[in-house]
Write a protein that binds this DNA or RNA. Structure first.
Length: 555
RNA sequence: GUCCCAGUAGCUCAGCUGGAUAGAGCAACAGCCUUCUAAGCUGUGGGUCGCAGGUUCGAAUCCUGCCUGGGACACCA
């Protein structure tokens, strides 16, 4: 437990004891204590609404109840300086702030672990994200999914969950055949053959290049084998090429996966048939009009869905069910899928599948990532200037850099649309939140460097000297971090971490302008403030790391 | 027609599982550099939380209906 948690736990404990001691309710009747940090500083460091919650149970008015609680409360047990009753019955607590200073040495000791949950949870969570079809490049929607997915994984890990990141490769569909045919055509053309591109083929320059490369490396040998064999070869070549490019793009975007799961493997191991049969055994499958149907309405879907079409082939749903069965068989407690907004209609049927396989509805969570709109010069950017097609992850990375993208994509709640302002993302000014935060980190780095040059460092630390308004604000902010991580994990809201980093940076800048750190005239205070700066620097770095943004030493 | 998401300051968005006078950034206005990075700070103004009901001590938050914007509703992958 970190210091903030310990402090809160003590207060809560004492509230419960006071309620009982005042004879207001028995221990079973007492609701969970809600302890919050008021937005308005005048309301103290913590506040509880216990008296209002007790109104119904104790049948007294909240202010009276609050009075009884305050009377029975032992302030010395919870480092409380002062208590007051306010508004409709809030009890406000003002802390004896010296406890806050303990944070600094504890953060410096925990280092990159500060913010992480002390104990590991048993829950295993698998997060599947991006999963773009391996037929082209990654676009902005994928980029946002990647940024949010990876940040969420980092945050879940920090909160103590056992996390696995997975990319599902849709390598069994029609599009892959088209890709294979396109590569094949380009290969033949590179060898000087007249060979038509397939209808709806992939006409990009990259595929032409790949065809040339294959022709150069492998010669004409594929013209001499059967069409089937040739097709299989170019399918593999095309796939390998597309995937390696995706992996490279994502790697440069600082996103890596533990597992790349192939859809084709489900076919090869007859997993799809097995999944359909399992549903059939549970009485959830029926035949009608020559097709095989899955009774998803049993689990709240609008209508039943086809698994096997009347031409004998599977719909996309069948392999998806087999895939999710495979995930569940691997023993994950929770599956989180990160999908683009255009897929939200599939949620009911996938949830139906999970339930049909005997798991609780909550086992599968789907996080929907809303659209990204690019803006430049105040105008919506529809298409890439270079290619005339949708803007890719790679292009934007080249334009604005990884840090800005990672931060911007994660800074809004995933279910609201994101307006991505390219001018802002590129700008090196205080308007750009990424620079603002990184600048705070770099500023501290500069101070630390100078503290060495000026020989102002020492191991002396006296927390009681950190009492200015800005220092207290900073300390309180530092103390919030573990709880922010916890909340972001539980609620699946990575944007809380970006927001926190911004707030902490803001506190730092504010402190910086108000107080001087390096002051030879006050050696102990200087040493203590240096420690405080180190703690802020560490916490900024930790917060940024969770969302995949670098913390530079100088700018 | 059905379903999902959104609607909060001029703009972009927060608002943590119902709490006090609804917050931040940008934009506007007024200030702060012989001092550790002014890529920064301080202050001021700005609100019918889409609309109407309901639930209760208390609603931006929960429920119902409606309005607006976006998306989804295949034996397509």
């Amino acid at each position: 437990m970190n210091i903030a948690e310990k402090t809160e736990a003590k207060i809560k404990e004492e509230i419960v004891r006071a309620v009982e001691a005042a004879g207001l309710a028995s221990s079973e009747e007492i609701p969970d204590v809600v302890l919050e940090q008021p937005k308005d500083k005048q309301h103290g460091d913590y506040a509880t609404n216990m008296a209002m919650q007790m109104a119904r149970i104790a049948k007294k008015n909240p202010r009276e109840i609050a009075g009884d609680i305050v009377e029975a409360f032992d302030k010395s047990k919870a480092s409380i300086e002062e208590m007051e009753i306010a508004g409709p019955g809030f009890i406000n607590f003002r802390m004896n702030n010296t406890y806050l200073a303990e944070l600094v040495p504890s953060i410096l000791e925990e280092k990159e672990s500060y913010g992480k949950s002390g104990e590991a949870r048993r829950e295993r969570i698998q997060v599947e994200f991006v999963s773009a079809n391996p037929t082209g490049t990654l676009h902005l929607g994928h980029a946002r999914g990647a940024a949010i997915g990876d940040a969420l994984c980092n945050i879940l890990e920090a909160a103590g969950y056992d996390v696995e990141r997975e990319y599902y490769i849709n390598d069994a569909g029609n599009q892959i055949s088209k890709l294979a045919e396109s590569v094949e055509a380009r290969y033949m053309q590179a060898l000087g053959e007249e060979y038509a591109m397939p209808e709806d083929g992939y006409h990009g320059a990259d595929i032409i290049e790949l065809g040339k490369q294959l022709a150069a490396e492998e010669g004409a040998r594929w013209t001499e084998v059967s069409g089937e064999e040739r097709h299989r070869h170019f399918r593999e070549s095309g796939l390998r090429y597309a995937l390696s490019r995706i992996e490279k793009d994502l790697g440069d975007f600082r996103v890596t996966f533990d597992e790349w799961f192939s859809e084709t493997s489900l076919y090869e191991e007859n997993k799809i048939e097995a999944a359909v049969e399992e549903l059939r055994a549970r009485g959830l499958v029926y035949e009608q009009e020559g097709a095989t149907w899955f009774r998803t309405t049993e689990y709240g879907d609008d209508k039943d869905r086809v698994l096997v079409k009347n031409d004998g082939t599977y719909t996309y749903l069948a392999p998806d069910i087999a895939y999710h069965k495979n995930k569940l068989d691997r023993g994950f407690d929770t599956l989180i899928n990160i999908w683009g907004a255009d897929h939200h209609g599939y949620i009911p049927r996938m949830r139906a599948a999970v339930q049909a396989l005997g798991y609780a509805k909550e086992t599968l969570e789907v996080e929907i990532i809303q659209m990204v709109n690019l803006f430049e010069n105040g105008e919506k950017v529809k298409m890439s200037k270079r290619t005339g097609k949708a803007v890719t992850l790679r292009e934007l990375m080249d334009e604005v850099g990884v840090d800005a993208m990672r931060y911007f994509f994660a800074m809004r709640s995933s279910d609201s649309h994101l307006d991505f302002d390219m001018d802002l993302a590129r700008s090196e000014s205080n308007e750009n939140p990424v620079y603002y935060i990184q600048y705070a980190h770099a500023r501290i780095a500069t101070m630390l460097k100078q503290s060495e040059e000026k020989n102002l460092r020492s191991d002396e630390f006296d927390g009681t000297l950190l009492t200015s308004e800005k220092e207290i604000d900073l300390l309180k902010r530092l103390g919030e971090f573990p709880q922010i991580v916890e909340d972001a994990a539980v609620n699946r809201t990575p944007h809380r971490v970006t927001q926190y980093a911004f707030d902490l940076a803001s506190n730092l800048h504010s402190f910086y302008n108000a107080e001087k750190v390096l002051d030879a005239g006050h050696p102990v205070r200087t040493a203590s403030r240096i420690k405080l700066m180190e703690a802020v620097k560490q916490t900024l770095r930790n917060a940024l790391a969770l969302v995949g943004v670098e913390a530079p030493e100088k700018m």
